[in-house]
Design a protein around this nucleic acid. Structure first.
Lengths: 246, 246
DNA sequence: CAGTGGTCTAGACCACCTC
DNA sequence: AGGTGGTCTAGACCACTGA
């Protein structure tokens, strides 16, 4: 383990960040999969030849970014989208009145296409590369609330079909993670207000031209690689997008 | 300083949280004002009778929540809205293309009224309590982008007038902080898409009925006390609301 | 009971800023 | 040179979990 030297170095990074990079590498390589327990802090300290406190600080950072989950008395685990507690990590939706009812994801279409310039740029693909387009509806209490159009790199999801989407019991990201080993780490969203076109208005059962919240999302996996582009049309009569500013 | 006992206690909190509470109290009481430097970690450790590491952990948490700002080699400072770096902490606005131009806040109206039931509930006031209503426009590159209607508890801003708002050189929160000692700590936002009414459409120079992003914000000061209710109408033709999901 | 993460301490040294 | 925050260590003990 390289200890920081007394000389100034433009690539200087503290020891705990080097440890963090090593742990991240083991996550990327699949040595520890989603939901798995990782070795204890003291084991990692021995393995990396540093003190437990240094390992601890690395894990602290990764837990703060939702890459790992600590559970006192049990151990440290790789974060997973299978955990129902993380369902709303990427869905900032709330009901105007009362609690949010359980949701149902209704896949509508799933087909393969070639990337146009926009999709190619957003997903860092060559123009013309194979992509998958998915359309689905999110319902709460049997009321349609979100219409999603999702663009995925074809290579990462080789056999994805509508039937597979329909058979998925939980969230999309949970399916992507367990079936294709693609883990969504963070996302960037851009929100705008738009008028409902014909398709959206019919699916969401609102008048054509009525205002919808458009949420454009780019989702990244490890190493900031974009792996999903999504346009969500939110009907915000009875629901809203909730955001906390710290 | 109460050290945690070996007995189980429902009110148990670790030492560094007690230290954090003490530091917070000094912030609330005004012992250290916005922008001030606070005593060094070792000084605080002596003052509170704990080790430097414990003070450090307390400050770590508060820095993560933007209550304090650390600057290596200089010291630890009380966060302030005067700092231009924190201008976008509560304004998640970005241009669709290119960088965001410098903004201009244009106060339009400012009058006093009595709290209706909605405002009273949101700001935790008695119905009929004195409030202040402010309307203002936010422009970027001389283009109107956001129309805000702001409700404030009258008691906290005794002499606030339109002229004072107009004379404010920087952000509203900066004015509130330096003139009235009211520091905005965190906020809750609810976003919806709505149709532009006559007033909004004229001010934002869009067609009546065109879609606008409605951002409802409740802002809190220390001890989770609500001190601002704001409805912002965002024109999202050339701009968008940007959010990062971790 | 043993093993895990969580807290607290004391001390050393590094990186950065100011005088 | 002297102060600040930032990193790293080693060791002790506490709180929680599960066998």
């Amino acid at each position: 383990m390289n200890k920081p030297s007394t000389f100034h170095s433009p690539t200087f990074s503290p020891l705990y960040r080097q440890i963090r990079a090593l742990i991240t590498r083991s996550l990327e390589s699949g040595e520890w999969g989603p939901g798995d327990i990782i070795p204890s802090e003291s084991e990692l300290a021995i393995r990396f030849g540093v003190s437990q406190g240094t390992v601890r600080k690395a894990i602290d950072e990764m837990a703060a970014e939702n890459l790992l989950v600590r559970r006192q008395g049990k151990g440290t685990f790789v974060a997973t989208h299978n955990d129902p507690r993380s369902f709303f990590r990427f869905l900032r939706l709330a009901a105007n009145e009362g609690e949010l009812q359980p949701s149902k994801s209704v896949p509508l279409e799933c087909w393969r296409a070639k990337a146009g310039p926009d999709v190619a740029r957003t997903l860092a693909l060559e123009p013309g590369a194979p992509i998958i387009i998915v359309r689905r509806l999110l319902c709460f209490a049997n009321e349609p609330v979100v219409f999603d159009e999702i663009y995925l790199p074809g290579e990462l999801f080789p056999d994805l079909t509508l039937d597979i989407l329909k058979s998925g019991t939980s969230s999309l990201y949970s399916l992507f993670e367990s079936r294709y080993g693609v883990r969504m780490i963070r996302a960037d969203e851009r929100l705008r207000a738009v008028s409902a076109d014909r398709v959206s208005s019919e699916l969401l059962q609102v008048a054509e031209g009525s205002p919808l919240l458009l949420v454009e999302r780019v989702t990244f996996t490890y190493a900031d690689k974009p792996v999903e582009w999504r346009r969500g049309y939110y009907s915000t009569q009875n629901f809203h997008y909730h955001n906390e500013l710290g």
